[in-house]
């Protein structure tokens, strides 16, 4: 295993972590805002707030970790993506800012400002949409290099059906992942009404996620044949992913083992995400940038890997403590402390 692959694997893992925890967070925000408008606030608001409050900051760090690590391991991405993403990433920053400030302002300060609540709920769908653009761009076809200067072709990006299917998948996934997790959480909290409502949301969004995923695979064949062909080489992973989807859905329908339903959902996404990632190899940006020509030097890579391992020794116990106190503590989940 080369250092390049170690580097990208670590980053891919963190991106996956971000996708899961952020989806829960984004979707929760959306459901929270939606329930406010649909007058169902009393049903699910409590459960969502109890889960979100202690962990919101942690979610953001996953993202920061990903892009800082990216620039660390693959400094050329700073040049290519930095230049191309000026506008899209700035939009994401602003949306993240609205979201981040909402937490603090509403949870600890201003209570129940409907307008802000609405904005916050909307960021839950706009942030994933704006971030998913990066994956779309990485497929190539939306960047022109002129005298060594990359520019983003906004028009092509905007009218491409591929862009919109990725956006669609990101939105449906956010809502599905989040509803599934919160069903488990509400169940653990012993709040049956919230559980049943959230379970219904999860069921509603399960079909659209899998459909939009299929649409993307179909469109990839037209947009980037090379990637599509390589993805078909690991098609067994997609099959496994689909089986986990069925299992997760089955448990949800049967109203049993909500925890396991969520675990298989994570597996479903992991297999799909890694199938996508592995077949994307070695490109970071089709066809200009691979993990090899953008890689930092060996010394720095080793230093980063060492720092990463040392960091994990610090983080894993701390994360475990956080989960133990808030996620797996029956009394806390049930609202008794």
């Amino acid at each position: 295993m080369t250092l390049e692959i170690v580097g990208i694997s670590v980053l891919w893992l963190f991106l996956f972590g971000y996708i899961i925890v952020a989806s829960i967070d984004f979707g929760a925000g959306f459901f929270s805002a939606y329930s406010e408008i649909a007058n169902k606030k009393h049903v699910i608001h409590q459960v969502i707030q109890r889960y979100l409050s202690p962990v919101w900051e942690v979610t953001n760090v996953f993202l920061v970790f990903f892009f800082v690590g990216m620039v660390g391991f693959f400094p050329k991405t700073a040049y290519y993506y930095g230049t191309i993403l000026l506008v899209p990433a700035s939009i994401s920053i602003i949306l993240l800012a609205i979201r981040g400030s909402y937490y603090a302002f509403s949870t600890y300060g201003i209570k129940d400002n409907k307008w802000y609540m609405f904005l916050y709920g909307m960021t839950g769908v706009f942030i994933p949409a704006s971030l998913s653009i990066v994956l779309t761009i990485s497929e190539g076809g939306f960047v022109r290099i002129h005298h060594g200067e990359p520019t983003l072709l906004y028009k092509q990006l905007f009218v491409s059906p591929f862009t919109w299917s990725v956006v669609l998948l990101s939105l449906t996934s956010v809502l599905y992942i989040s509803a599934n997790f919160l069903t488990y959480y509400a169940n653990a909290a012993g709040d049956e009404r919230a559980r049943d409502l959230l379970r219904r949301y999860a069921l509603v969004w399960s079909g659209p996620t899998i459909l939009s995923a299929l649409v993307i695979i179909y469109q990839l064949n037209h947009h980037n044949v090379e990637h599509y062909t390589k993805m078909m080489d690991v098609s067994w992973m997609l099959v496994v992913s689909f089986l986990f989807f069925i299992l997760s859905l089955y448990l949800l329908i049967k109203k049993r083992y909500f925890g396991w339903s969520f675990v298989s959902l994570v597996m479903q996404y992991a297999f799909a995400f890694y199938a996508y990632g592995i077949s994307h190899y070695p490109y970071l940006l089709y066809p200009y940038l691979t993990i090899y020509d953008s890689f930092t030097n060996k010394t720095m890579a080793i230093a980063l890997v060492i720092a990463f391992i040392a960091g994990l020794f610090l983080l894993i116990p701390s994360l475990f403590l956080l989960l133990k106190l808030f996620l797996f503590d029956k009394k806390y989940v049930k609202g008794q402390i």
Partner: peptide
């Protein structure tokens, strides 16, 4: 050359965020 401390900073912040939440 200098991405190591940037990388370590995210760890430090991660650590802080977790314990602040707790």
């Amino acid at each position: 050359v200098i991405s190591l401390p940037l990388f370590m900073e995210t760890f430090a912040f991660f650590f802080e965020a977790i314990f602040l939440g707790i």
